[in-house]
Design a protein around this nucleic acid. Structure first.
Lengths: 127, 127
DNA sequence: CTAAACCTTGACATTGACGTGAGAGTCAAG
DNA sequence: CTTGACTCTCACGTCAATGTCAAGGTTTAG
């Protein structure tokens, strides 16, 4: 398929697809005319890229870990421990932020005096 | 304290601190000379801001939820129902922010295939 | 009082992940 | 062969969160 169809099938703009190629994340075959030709596997590849971007990784990091990812039937399975470690760190940063927001929310509930505040009884305000 | 000391105590550049003020996240008092003067509470405030930024929230989102954070002594006691309503709205924005972060974290978990992902066994990868 | 250290407001530069044309080539249908 | 849809490569624009440099005012130690 050509770039337009891949764009439609993934919901990703043509510009973004060309950008991913520029960053080495995709390597479509070229026709003599220069037209890019993608395979069915690229639909899944683009999906993977988007998941990783959505998780806060940048294209350089994604490029590094792509070879570590085994795609068995749509599942993303990390292969090397370095990758897992990096992802865990990212995860813990997000955990911290969620914790902060939950504390904030509990504070709010205390002020509002709603029923929901009962669930966080004993929670102290942030120092 | 002045901006240099706050920068040292938080590890955040002076430029960033001025930027946070520009975005309404910090509101130091000013001396007649124009020098910014911060209080001890601002050290904690900056720390909160950094955690939320690190998790992918932008300054506008942080600005929305920041006034909901009650620290140590500054208890807000709402009398008028308008205030309570405003607080409820803020609460729901915090819920949204938490929801976004949880989605991101779930994406990460799917990739990591960690113990926590086991809880969602059978989950299909995001489209 | 003076020098060093600190602070101020601009304002332009940068990085990442694209958006948005411009101008030109390619391809399938009629 | 022509038209219209599709694609190509520049190349500049954008937005957020800073970095960096410039030209000047302020404070404090000696």
């Amino acid at each position: 398929m050509r770039i337009g169809e891949l764009a439609r099938r993934t919901g990703v703009s043509e510009r973004a697809l060309r950008y991913y190629e520029e960053q080495g994340l995709l390597t479509p075959v070229r026709r003599p005319s220069g037209y890019r030709v993608y395979g069915d596997a690229d639909v899944a590849a683009v999906r993977r890229i988007r998941i990783l971007l959505a998780a806060g990784l940048n294209t350089a990091q994604i490029l590094e870990i792509l070879p570590c990812i085994v795609d068995e039937d749509g599942w993303l399975t990390p292969d090397c421990p370095e990758l897992v470690e990096a992802l865990r760190q990212q995860r813990s940063r997000i955990d911290d932020a969620i914790g902060e927001l939950e504390t904030t929310r509990a504070n709010l509930d205390t002020i509002i005096g709603s029923e929901k505040a009962a669930a966080s009884r004993g929670t102290r305000p942030p120092s």
